[in-house]
Simulated scan of single mutants.
Amino acid sequence: MSNQDSSFSKEQQNLLKAFKKQITNPHSAKIAAEHEQKKAQVKTEQDDELDLFKKALQGVKQLDSSNIAKVEKSRVRKPDAKTLAKRAAAEGPRETDDAELSDTQAMLNPVASQAALSYRIATLQHKVFEELKAGNLRWYEAVDLHGCTVEDARTAVLQIIQIAKDENQNVIKIVHGKGPDAVLKTYVNSWLRQHRDVLAFVSAPENQGGTGAVLVLLKRSEKNPKFKQ
């Protein structure tokens, strides 16, 4: 029967459709009501838990972060020449090899402030030298010569080499700086070439001091008991 032939009004037809739906699925209205009821119950429980949490935090104060100790990574030791001088005064002077290093070579061969230093003995393996140049060989000890006289710098270089030998370490770092005249840099370049325990040295990579520092590779001391370890 079409809508035109129907004797029911539009409102009556809508009521009839709703009644048919209810007959087809009698539980749908009940399920929808139960679902809404559960949602309301969950929201009430959440609100109750939030209220309890707020009550539990009453009187609690935020910690003062200024009182918390900062944990920093330990840095590799890097004494300056004055520190080495104080150490020598307290412990007594160390016996150093090749204590008499000539300055003649430094006077005859000055180096430029930005020049890259490079030296190796003929028998040193190329691969080892390249590792040193790349900064891949971890240095044990370092000394900063900034502010030193030439004599203080000479003593500090000899001391740092001896300290490394005593500890059976074979890579050190010497920070000589650049300076307009590169005086200390010139002397360090000369002294290291003369020292019999120096196998190689090279200006440090940019992130480790660049042309203001050298990484030095030393012989290991076979007479040192730690050598076997």
Rank of each mutant, 00 (worst) to 15 (best):
residue 142 A to T: 10
residue 136 N to D: 07
residue 121 I to V: 12
residue 136 N to W: 08
residue 151 E to D: 11
residue 167 E to K: 08
residue 166 D to L: 09
residue 130 E to P: 09
residue 127 K to W: 06
residue 132 L to N: 11
residue 166 D to H: 06
residue 151 E to M: 06
residue 148 C to R: 07
residue 163 I to H: 08
residue 123 T to L: 10
residue 135 G to C: 02
residue 165 K to H: 06
residue 151 E to K: 02
residue 142 A to G: 15
residue 130 E to Q: 14
residue 155 T to K: 04
residue 151 E to P: 03
residue 134 A to Q: 12
residue 138 R to Q: 09
residue 120 R to E: 12
residue 154 R to E: 12
residue 147 G to Y: 13
residue 158 L to Q: 02
residue 133 K to A: 15
residue 165 K to D: 00
residue 127 K to D: 15
residue 142 A to F: 05
residue 155 T to C: 11
residue 129 F to C: 03
residue 160 I to C: 00
residue 161 I to M: 10
residue 145 L to R: 04
residue 138 R to G: 11
residue 137 L to F: 01
residue 162 Q to C: 01
residue 139 W to Q: 08
residue 133 K to R: 14
residue 128 V to S: 08
residue 126 H to N: 12
residue 140 Y to D: 10
residue 135 G to I: 00
residue 158 L to P: 05
residue 165 K to Y: 00
residue 164 A to G: 03
residue 162 Q to Y: 04
residue 157 V to C: 04
residue 140 Y to G: 04
residue 122 A to F: 13
residue 156 A to C: 12
residue 159 Q to I: 03
residue 152 D to Q: 05
residue 143 V to C: 13
residue 122 A to K: 14
residue 161 I to Y: 10
residue 144 D to A: 02
residue 120 R to S: 09
residue 128 V to G: 07
residue 157 V to W: 04
residue 161 I to A: 08
residue 129 F to Y: 05
residue 159 Q to L: 10
residue 130 E to F: 13
residue 163 I to G: 07
residue 145 L to T: 00
residue 149 T to M: 11
residue 142 A to N: 03
residue 124 L to Q: 05
residue 147 G to C: 12
residue 149 T to L: 11
residue 123 T to H: 09
residue 124 L to M: 10
residue 132 L to W: 06
residue 137 L to M: 03
residue 148 C to S: 12
residue 131 E to A: 05
residue 156 A to T: 01
residue 150 V to D: 12
residue 152 D to N: 07
residue 161 I to Q: 09
residue 134 A to N: 09
residue 145 L to M: 04
residue 131 E to N: 09
residue 143 V to L: 09
residue 133 K to Q: 13
residue 136 N to Q: 04
residue 142 A to P: 15
residue 135 G to Q: 04
residue 160 I to V: 10
residue 154 R to H: 13
residue 124 L to V: 03
residue 144 D to R: 02
residue 123 T to P: 05
residue 157 V to E: 13
residue 124 L to T: 08
residue 136 N to P: 07
residue 129 F to W: 12
residue 162 Q to G: 01
residue 154 R to T: 08
residue 147 G to E: 06
residue 124 L to K: 07
residue 130 E to Y: 04
residue 146 H to F: 15
residue 134 A to D: 15
residue 163 I to F: 02
residue 126 H to W: 09
residue 120 R to Q: 13
residue 155 T to N: 05
residue 163 I to S: 05
residue 139 W to H: 13
residue 143 V to Q: 02
residue 162 Q to I: 00
residue 153 A to E: 00
residue 161 I to C: 10
residue 133 K to V: 06
residue 146 H to S: 11
residue 154 R to V: 03
residue 154 R to D: 05
residue 142 A to M: 13
residue 137 L to R: 01
residue 140 Y to H: 12
residue 124 L to I: 00
residue 152 D to E: 12
residue 163 I to C: 14
residue 138 R to E: 15
residue 143 V to A: 03
residue 146 H to C: 11
residue 138 R to I: 08
residue 149 T to E: 06
residue 126 H to Y: 08
residue 148 C to I: 03
residue 137 L to C: 07
residue 160 I to D: 01
residue 158 L to I: 05
residue 128 V to H: 14
residue 139 W to C: 10
residue 128 V to C: 11
residue 161 I to N: 13
residue 159 Q to S: 15
residue 151 E to S: 03
residue 139 W to K: 11
residue 167 E to D: 15
residue 135 G to T: 02
residue 165 K to E: 11
residue 145 L to S: 00
residue 156 A to M: 04
residue 152 D to G: 04
residue 123 T to Q: 14
residue 145 L to P: 00
